[in-house]
């Protein structure tokens, strides 16, 4: 139960993270293989440039996975992820540092379900927020 967070401890405005990620082009190839997303803009620079991109770009779904990791790390082994959303509003490129963070936006214990909602985002090395998301989780109580 080390580091397990409980519903009673959470306050609106609490911060989640940060979780820092540095994505290499090698990782993009690895993610393409693991996820099956072989769209060439993620690993073929010539193809990406021909498609009016600055170079290869990070898979949106990889950033989605980072936000998922941020939340599941925070809720611990006894928390339960109910919903995760992610919107890609800007492109990110490899070899940058992506900082994943969040904040608690609401909590409710209606019908004995201890639900916490969170806002999530990713900021790149230029201090640009490129990715936004939300999460809805169930947290354990100290009594349970």
């Amino acid at each position: 139960m080390d580091n397990q967070i409980f519903y009673e401890e959470v306050q609106i405005g609490d911060t989640i993270g940060p979780l820092d990620k540095q994505v290499s082009t090698r990782q993009l190839v690895q993610y393409a293989g693991a996820s099956g997303d072989y769209y060439e803009i993620h690993y073929d620079k010539d193809f990406a440039v021909q498609n009016e991109l600055p170079g290869v770009i990070i898979h949106g779904a990889l950033k989605n996975a980072f936000l998922g990791e941020l939340v599941t790390n925070w809720i611990g082994k006894e928390g339960k992820l109910l919903e995760l959303t992610c919107q890609y509003r800007g492109m990110d490129v490899p070899n940058d540092t992506l900082r994943c963070e969040g904040t608690v936006s609401s909590k409710s214990d209606k019908d004995s379900h201890n639900v916490v909602e969170c806002e999530l985002w990713i900021t790149n090395g230029k201090e640009e927020k490129t990715t936004f998301g939300t999460a809805k989780v169930l947290l354990p109580t100290k009594a349970s």
């Binding site: 949106g60 779904a61 998922g68 339960k80 992820l81 919903e83 995760l84 959303t85 890609y88």
Partner: peptide
């Protein structure tokens, strides 16, 4: 790909 909503 503009984004996703996951439900579990």
């Amino acid at each position: 790909d503009a984004g996703s909503q996951w439900q579990y």
